[in-house]
Structures are given as structure tokens and as C-alpha cells.
Write a protein that binds this DNA or RNA. Structure first.
Length: 263
DNA sequence: ATGGTAGTCCGACTA
């Protein structure tokens, strides 16, 4: 079974690229982030015609997550227990988490809050969101230690110095702060291993390149998209790669897809 | 040194 995660940056703009991705890599499951549309606006038909089922969760033009599967799509869950909300004056849940059981694997499509700046309330929101995700994910494993769970998506955290092209450029910036890295590592410590890095080691291995400043041709990127697997799921992984070619050309998302093969 | 891009709904917000 082949499972991918991709921050598509608008599914309506890139449905064709998503379909090409499914076909090119013979994907069974594709977790999408930043679909940027409501459920009603989501282009479901082309995926169904290609033989896939679609679960999507979008509330407005921001965020939005989806899971596209031809390996079954059961027990669909929007958000996770304890997931923090955002907004003033009344914080409300955002469309940042969608889970579904696909062929016996609990796949999560996650879009972790960006954080914006270290002194921005969004940064505290990001840390709280990751902390509650850790709690929920630890609970799932405590309840079912043999569960096959994949936490995939855009984590908006670069866990290691080698995951950005130049640490000096990130002085005082989000994505590399000790608190963000600790929040990410807490989820690893809860039993979820990064199953891609062993097959796609750094330095210089990235999943995101800013549209601005010629970051992609200059090879100035960040590794912020991950697939973290529970022990039972990690034990099935036979390979993984980052589809850097998908970032090329006109009309590309600013993120590259990350693909995991389960035996 | 600065600003540059790209998406959404249409001047501004998000990334």
C-alpha cells in the first residue's frame, strides 16, 4: 500500500496535478492539506471517476484537509479530541485535521498552525495544538498498542538544523524554535517515528520552498512535511521518498508530496 | 538594501 501526503495549496487550482500524482505513483491513499475550499466547493467527481473515495473537511477559504483513498475510507473523523480552536473573541475549531481508516491503517491528514511570529498569539496556538495532538495520539496508542496509525501532513516545524537551508536565516523565526521542536519530538516520544527520513536523509533534503526569492531553483527549502508512524505501521514501511519533481514547473504547489510504501 | 510569489475573495489576509 502506497500512501502520500501533500500540501496542495488549493485543490481547485491543482486537482489535475493531484490526479497525476495518484497515477504517477500508483497511490492508494493521498492526504491533502490546504485544500482552501468548503466541502461543497471540493472537486470530488474527478477523483471518484478515477476510482477513489473522497473525505474532505473545509469550512472556508483557509486551511482545509482531505483524504483520497482507493483502499477503503471508514470511520472518518474531523478534528481530534481536545483540538484547540482559533479566533477572536470566540475560538472555533479550524479545518486542520481529518482522520480515516484506509485498508486497516488510520491515516490522519494534519495541517499544523503556522505560528506566524514568535510573539504572535498564533505561535501559542501552534504549540497548544501540537501538545493536544500529542495527548490524543498518545491516547490512541495506549488504547490500542498494535494500531496502525499514520500522522501525516504539513507540520510547519523543521525538527533539525539540517532541515532548513541556513539556520542563520531563521534566527528569531518560527519553525525552528526549541519549543516547536520539543512539541514535535514529544509526538515522536509518544511512539510515532519519522518513517521517511531514513529513506530520504539530509542535509539538503526538503519538502517546501517559498514561492518568493527563487527559493526552489536556489535549493533553499525546508523539511516540514512528515509521516509519523505508530510502531505497527512503522514496521510495515519498506520505502519512502519526497517527490521533488512535483515542485517543478508553472502552477506547482510550494510543497512537494511525501510518499510512503507499506509492505 | 529592498522586494520579490501565490492562493482566496476582491483590499486584505494567509503563507
Amino acid at each position: 500500500m502506497r500512501i502520500a501526503t501533500w500540501n496542495v495549496n488549493s485543490i481547485r487550482t491543482r486537482a489535475g496535478r493531484a490526479l497525476g500524482l495518484l497515477q504517477r505513483h500508483d497511490l492508494d491513499v493521498l492526504a491533502l492539506q490546504e485544500t482552501k475550499c468548503t466541502d461543497a466547493q471540493f472537486p470530488v467527481e474527478p477523483f471518484e471517476q478515477a476510482g477513489y473515495q473522497v473525505a474532505r473537511h473545509g469550512l472556508n477559504q483557509w486551511n482545509g484537509v482531505a483524504i483520497i483513498s482507493r483502499a477503503g475510507l471508514e470511520d472518518v473523523r474531523t478534528g481530534f479530541p481536545g483540538m484547540p480552536g482559533w479566533g477572536d473573541p470566540e475560538p472555533a475549531p479550524e479545518a486542520r485535521a481529518l482522520g480515516a481508516r484506509c485498508g486497516g491503517v488510520d491515516v490522519w491528514s494534519l495541517y499544523i498552525p503556522n505560528g506566524r511570529e514568535l510573539d504572535n498569539p498564533h505561535y501559542a496556538y501552534k504549540l497548544g495544538w501540537l501538545a493536544r495532538l500529542r495527548d490524543a495520539a498518545a491516547g490512541w496508542l495506549a488504547a490500542a498498542p498494535q494500531a496502525q496509525i499514520l500522522l501525516t501532513g504539513d507540520w510547519n516545524v523543521a525538527p533539525r538544523d539540517e532541515d532548513v537551508w541556513d539556520m542563520a536565516a531563521f534566527e528569531g523565526k518560527t519553525h525552528v524554535s526549541p519549543a516547536e521542536r520539543a512539541a514535535f519530538e514529544a509526538i515522536v516520544a509518544a511512539g510515532y517515528a519519522d518513517v521517511v527520513r531514513p529513506y530520504a536523509p539530509g542535509p539538503g533534503t526538503y519538502t517546501y520552498w517559498d514561492y518568493q526569492k527563487l527559493r526552489f531553483p536556489r535549493r533553499e527549502g525546508m523539511r516540514i512535511d512528515f509521516a509519523l508512524a505508530s510502531p505497527a505501521a512503522a514496521g510495515r514501511v519498506t520505502g519512502a521518498f519526497i517527490d521533488r519533481d512535483e515542485r517543478k514547473g508553472k502552477g506547482a504547489s510550494d510543497h512537494a508530496p511525501v510518499v510512503v510504501e507499506l509492505g
